[in-house]
Nucleic acid binder design. Structure first.
Length: 162
DNA sequence: GTCCCGATTCTA
DNA sequence: AGAATCGGGACT
């Protein structure tokens, strides 16, 4: 069944862990989420919201359960799911789904770009997340990847299935 | 307007 | 280790 607003509007670390094993659906394509990272609030230096609201990161400040997609390195898009209540900017970066590694490759595979930022995953018919009963056996926690600040936080979570 | 740099990926 | 590649955000 589809994840509701209540799932996303919680503590971001809980949402991040629980997104592992859920299935993202986008325009008929489906993938089981295997790797995520949390970006939490204005005190997290690696979070796009660390220096306040901008046109790009505006959706992070809104209700949980929306998509946040941004363009990076001149050629890749990265997909996030917004978490926490309206007014608290945080999101979970979807770094991988089964058999697709890396956030840039994931968006390319699914055909996701910044025009798909700000979609309400709790009401959209083409973009949402489902619980299909899968539960990861073991979750690995590591520092986040590809950042220069905020490396001290163990906010990367991987479905460590063997 | 200008400048620097990035939540990546691929090649060597 | 370095290149590819360009929009966003800070600053003038």
């Amino acid at each position: 069944m589809r994840l509701s607003r209540d799932f996303f509007e919680r503590n971001t670390l809980d949402v991040a862990r629980e997104l592992l094993g859920k299935f993202m659906v986008f325009n008929g394509k489906v993938g089981r989420i295997t790797e995520v990272e949390a970006y939490i609030g204005q005190d997290d230096p690696a979070c796009h919201a660390a220096r306040g609201m901008t046109p790009r990161n505006r959706v992070m400040f809104g209700q949980g359960g929306f998509s946040y997609v941004y363009f990076i390195y001149g050629m890749y898009h990265c997909l996030n799911f917004v978490t926490e209540r309206e007014g608290f900017p945080a999101a979970v970066l979807i770094r991988g789904v089964e058999s697709v590694s890396g956030p840039g490759r994931l968006c390319k595979t699914f055909g996701i770009d910044k025009t798909h930022s700000g979609v309400d995953l709790c009401t959209s018919d083409s973009f949402y997340v489902e619980d299909r009963g899968y539960k990861p056996a073991c979750i690995k926690e590591t520092p986040r990847i590809g950042i220069k600040v905020g490396k001290d936080k163990m906010w990367r979570f991987i479905d460590d299935a063997i």
